[in-house]
Amino acid sequence: MMTIFEKQSSSYENQLTETDGKKPAVALGEINAQQLSIRLGTGASEFEAVQAVDFNIQPGEFVCLLGPSGCGKSTLLGALAGHIIPASGVLEVDGQAITGPSPERGMVFQHHTLFPWLNIVDNVAFGLKMRGVNKAERHAQALEMLQQVGLHDVATRWPSQLSGGMQQRVEIARVLINKPRLLLMDEPFGALDAQTRLKMQQLLLDIWSRIRTTLVFVTHDIDEALFLADRILVMSPRPGRFIKNLPVNFARPRTTGLVTTPEFMQLKRHCLDLLNHEEGRQLPRLSPLGLPPETRIAV
């Protein structure tokens, strides 16, 4: 099954290595998690949302977390952002434990969180303002960043005057202006219509090819994950665990034509099987003997 993609794998790795002797162009933004567990809720209703996961994400890698609703994807992303403190295990970025939110780890949610009282350019410049950059300088940088997402002409509008897709583009610009090591995206295009969503996916790949960060992208849409990612981590429902580490080695730059190729279809079939299999399976979380061994796939 995987042989088709292994061929492409080598070509993609060449792409990366060609730019810079040994390492990819980006050296920062490596994520390392060992035996990471995250508990949610309080008191009697407390439960394990993410259970003893191990994973490593390389600097500059585009990884999708794929899984059904409620499996703990947002929880894991929240821990990476620093909004949720893990119960146990190791969670590090470039060898440093995550202790709280930081502009080095930018977060984009499904529904935009632009400040309604700031116009677009001031929203984008917010991070710079927090760092004490003067107004002229931060406006210049914010306009430059808006240009990158193709929105320089709406700088003086209010967020509520923009379409959903534009709001998400502003959100991305606002995060990227801080030059983060990680870009964390939680179903960022989930609320958009199909057409806009496709455009946004391509725009994101385009931006990511220019401004390279490690990108962790949460989605429950198989097509989206396959189209975007270098690698997909497939999650199972409660308690969240990884059931598959799936490299996606389609050549870049990718175009919408990709989704109709047989290779794409085959990989999609594979993902569907993984997710369906998980759905039909008896949930192991109530067993006092721990999880069945076959579900503990190290990634």
């Binding site: 952002a81 709280g100 930081s102 977060m107 529904h111 400040f115 606002r174």
Partner: peptide, 29 residues
């Protein structure tokens, strides 16, 4: 005030004082 706005502002580097001045106050205005 939307707690997501506060979470976002923290991810954008806002200190507790800045959150009060830049997010909570205008949000409550």
């Amino acid at each position: 005030v939307d707690p997501r706005l506060i979470a976002s502002s923290r991810s954008l580097g806002a200190s507790p004082r800045a959150i009060l001045r830049e997010v909570v106050l205008p949000g409550a205005l």
